[in-house]
Computed example of a mutant assay.
Amino acid sequence: MAVEPRVLRRDDLLRAAMSAGFGTMTERRLEDFRQGGLMPRPVRVGNDGRRPVWIYPRGSDQQLVQLLRWREHTQNVDVLRVVLWIEGFPVALDAVRASATAVLTKLLHEVEQDLQAEASRLGLDPVADQDAVVSAVATVMAAKRGKNAVPRPIRVPASERATAVAHLLQIFALGKQPDVTEEEAETIEKVLGVSPGRRQRVEDADPWLTGPASALVDAADFVSLPRMTEVLADATDSEWEEARSPAAALFLHLPVFTRAMAAMTGKENFAGMGGQAAFDSEPIMAVFLVAFALGARRADWSGNVEGLRDSLAPWPALVDEMKLVLDMPQHELDQNIAGHGLEMWDRTQRIIKALLDGELDPGPRPTC
């Protein structure tokens, strides 16, 4: 039987996986992915003699490769569904909605359990004494060192750091709006690492962080764990589709922009954006960013989010232009840089290293 050109069969998908370095990919695993809604099902188009012919939708080979790359970072099926949907692959929206809601509901339950456990340890009532319980948890979190510690991008005195972490737990974990002074809010910005965004500029643009620091408290209305869980569950299909491209820009393009800025300036937290550099290395961030995009729209922040999306849109093409330098002979590169000073030389070398390391490519990068 004549088969339409460029159709994809099972073996084409397995070969694509092998070519991408996933030599252990098997037909059985592919079936598991189909059962989990992570891969589309093939369609029977006829027979080749007595053998049925099954073909996959175009792009299924790319979907499989991306799925395998993301699985190096997480094997949580719910998270993977959301990530693939954000990337534009055909995953059922109802399944994505259920998965995203399940992820945040589980996190919310874990937060509640942790607070109850701490209250029990201290002999306090988890509801009546919630502020004291949160303060105790924050003190431990603020002092913790090591791999799972809260990052310390900017030095803050221990007591102020603990108070800031307590306020962050109230805002983002509990959805409360604590009464904070402007000075305390500025300390929160330091703990988050975003405070340089008030003074450092990206090229000729104005600083991106403006207005009173205490306005952060109002964000509890739409970026807290309880509110995000609610909006994921009750947003309409059209709201989900409208949130898709902003979430993709935040999840896939913003980290590339941030890493590019770090390469060009030599500062890991330039303009307070360092915390965004690892968004695409943490697949669960896809869930948070979808919820953020949905909540921002309802909070009349859609213009800001869409503006950011549009400003990030050119970056894939800009990175492709940067990659042209990798094919340039060394003597030609030296001639182009000559006369621009040591700073330009250092910047160019940092960019070349970032390109070679894949730091300016969107999406999952090898874990090894």
Results as ranks from 00 to 15, higher is better:
residue 45 V to D: 06
residue 38 L to E: 13
residue 56 Y to S: 04
residue 96 V to M: 01
residue 242 E to H: 11
residue 106 K to P: 11
residue 361 D to N: 07
residue 6 R to D: 15
residue 344 M to G: 06
residue 283 P to C: 04
residue 303 G to S: 06
residue 261 M to Q: 10
residue 279 F to N: 12
residue 27 E to K: 15
residue 207 P to M: 08
residue 362 P to Q: 08
residue 35 Q to D: 09
residue 96 V to W: 01
residue 349 Q to T: 02
residue 102 A to P: 03
residue 257 F to I: 13
residue 338 A to V: 14
residue 172 F to M: 02
residue 222 F to S: 01
residue 68 L to Y: 03
residue 153 P to Y: 15
residue 281 S to K: 02
residue 34 R to V: 09
residue 101 T to G: 05
residue 34 R to I: 03
residue 29 R to F: 04
residue 83 V to P: 07
residue 116 Q to C: 11
residue 111 V to G: 06
residue 248 A to I: 01
residue 186 E to M: 10
residue 121 R to Y: 13
residue 219 A to V: 14
residue 34 R to N: 08
residue 317 A to S: 11
residue 201 R to A: 11
residue 129 D to W: 07
residue 334 D to R: 07
residue 100 A to C: 13
residue 63 Q to G: 07
residue 143 A to M: 04
residue 318 L to K: 01
residue 60 S to V: 02
residue 282 E to A: 07
residue 192 L to Q: 14
residue 7 V to C: 12
residue 60 S to L: 13
residue 165 V to N: 00
residue 256 V to C: 03
residue 358 G to K: 07
residue 64 L to A: 07
residue 20 A to V: 06
residue 156 V to W: 09
residue 57 P to Q: 07
residue 100 A to E: 11
residue 162 A to V: 02
residue 305 V to R: 00
residue 286 A to Y: 04
residue 291 A to P: 08
residue 169 L to M: 03
residue 330 Q to Y: 12
residue 118 E to A: 01
residue 48 D to A: 15
residue 276 Q to D: 10
residue 114 D to H: 09
residue 283 P to E: 03
residue 331 H to R: 14
residue 136 A to D: 00
residue 130 Q to V: 09
residue 160 E to L: 04
residue 65 V to R: 15
residue 109 H to K: 15
residue 75 Q to Y: 05
residue 236 T to F: 09
residue 312 L to H: 06
residue 82 V to T: 06
residue 122 L to W: 04
residue 334 D to F: 14
residue 330 Q to R: 08
residue 84 L to Q: 09
residue 190 K to G: 06
residue 191 V to P: 04
residue 87 E to Q: 08
residue 326 L to Q: 03
residue 363 G to N: 10
residue 121 R to H: 14
residue 153 P to C: 00
residue 353 K to E: 05
residue 244 R to G: 03
residue 295 G to M: 02
residue 14 L to R: 10
residue 339 G to P: 01
residue 89 F to N: 02
residue 232 L to E: 10
residue 249 A to K: 12
residue 181 T to N: 05
residue 212 P to Y: 02
residue 243 A to H: 08
residue 335 Q to T: 12
residue 15 R to E: 03
residue 95 A to N: 13
residue 297 R to A: 12
residue 233 A to K: 03
residue 143 A to P: 10
residue 231 V to A: 12
residue 294 L to A: 09
residue 148 N to A: 09
residue 347 R to G: 14
residue 94 D to F: 11
residue 208 W to S: 03
residue 10 R to W: 01
residue 32 D to I: 14
residue 300 D to Y: 12
residue 355 L to F: 11
residue 260 A to M: 03
residue 100 A to W: 00
residue 23 G to S: 01
residue 184 E to W: 14
residue 63 Q to I: 01
residue 296 A to T: 00
residue 299 A to E: 05
residue 263 A to V: 00
residue 202 V to N: 05
residue 287 V to A: 09
residue 152 R to E: 13
residue 36 G to Q: 13
residue 297 R to N: 05
residue 315 W to D: 12
residue 295 G to P: 02
residue 17 A to R: 15
residue 95 A to M: 06
residue 160 E to H: 13
residue 257 F to M: 10
residue 135 S to D: 00
residue 55 I to M: 03
residue 291 A to N: 07
residue 318 L to E: 13
residue 57 P to I: 05
residue 127 V to I: 07
residue 50 R to K: 10
residue 224 S to T: 06
residue 260 A to R: 05
